[in-house]
């Protein structure tokens, strides 16, 4: 029998359950919706839930525990879409710069004081 992978945690020892929860942020709702649209048969589907999971399970134990739930989701979506050639890594890089530039501090400087 092969050794279990880190996401396969049923039955292992762990501490008490901390009953944490939070209100979902807009980017988390957006990530959730992206996955629902991509996994909808109407889109092909371009990306199945199994592929989302595989992308998450391939991250490695360190990243898996460091990232929050929807951080794992969006990272997996980006990786799987690049792998499948739906998006290209260079256009994603450009788009990320574009998104960051939109939030650049220049637009907020005037409100300080």
């Amino acid at each position: 029998m092969s050794e279990r992978r880190y996401h396969d945690m049923g039955g292992l020892d762990a501490g008490p359950v901390a009953r944490t929860e939070h209100n979902f942020e807009p980017w988390e709702n957006k990530t959730d919706a992206i996955v629902r649209l991509l996994s909808n048969p109407k889109s092909g589907p371009l990306m199945r839930i199994d592929e989302l999971r595989r992308g998450i399970e391939d991250m490695g134990p360190g990243i898996y525990d460091e990232l929050t739930y929807y951080e794992r989701w969006i990272a997996s979506v980006a990786n799987v879409l690049i792998e499948k050639g739906v998006i290209h890594v260079d256009e994603l890089g450009r788009k990320l710069e574009e998104v960051k530039a939109r939030h650049a501090p220049a637009s907020t400087a005037a409100s300080e004081g």
Partner: peptide
């Protein structure tokens, strides 16, 4: 203060970037 003014984390920006690319490509 608009939420938009707070610089996004890497993953928040990634969600926007992926969504915008998929919209541009006509996926949805």
């Amino acid at each position: 203060k608009d939420l938009e003014d707070i610089p996004p984390t890497y993953h928040q920006a990634l969600a926007d970037a992926v969504a915008e690319l998929l919209i541009e490509k006509g996926v949805f």
